[in-house]
Amino acid sequence: MRRAEIVTAFFLGVLSLYFMWKSGEGPGWDPDVARFDNIGLILDEGPGSGFWPFWLSLIMLLCSVWIGINWYLRKSPPSQSEEPFLDHHAKRTFLLVGGGLLGFLILIGIIGFYGAIFVFMIYFIGGLGRHRLVPTLIISTAIPVCSFFFFDIAMRIVLPKGYLEPLFLPLYDLFL
């Protein structure tokens, strides 16, 4: 945990520097505006576009340094802890659930929301939850069906359907 605290503080410090760098970018259409010209007060225009994010990012950077000092002085609970950042159970859960979610996102691009929901529910309820096949199938089917009727039909919010799009055309003809 102690090592994770300082690594995270370092990463967040670098992120703050990146935010400061990006805040100073002038508009692409005006090459005469130099980097960091927009972080102060501009005559008759008030604060520039980078004013707000630049100074906030600087405060973020200072906070990262402050967190680093607290780590060195062992002031914060994580900097005093010798426990592992993720134990075996947490690592396993993170990989299985996080991996499942990433798979879900990738599947949306291929078989659309409703197909991906079905597969994800089967994976989670049947695979990780080890529930019996019948309730797993019922829930995994009911969720995308209810979602379709609520979002696509009632709310007219069309969710991506990927390669399964042709399967939905008769339903549109029927309900819309």
Binding site: L105, I108, F113, F120, M121, F124, I125, S147
Partner: peptide, 15 residues
Amino acid sequence: PFTILAPVIFVLSLI
């Protein structure tokens, strides 16, 4: 059961 509620929450979050 949490193993049913959790994926429902994930699905609701994404949708």
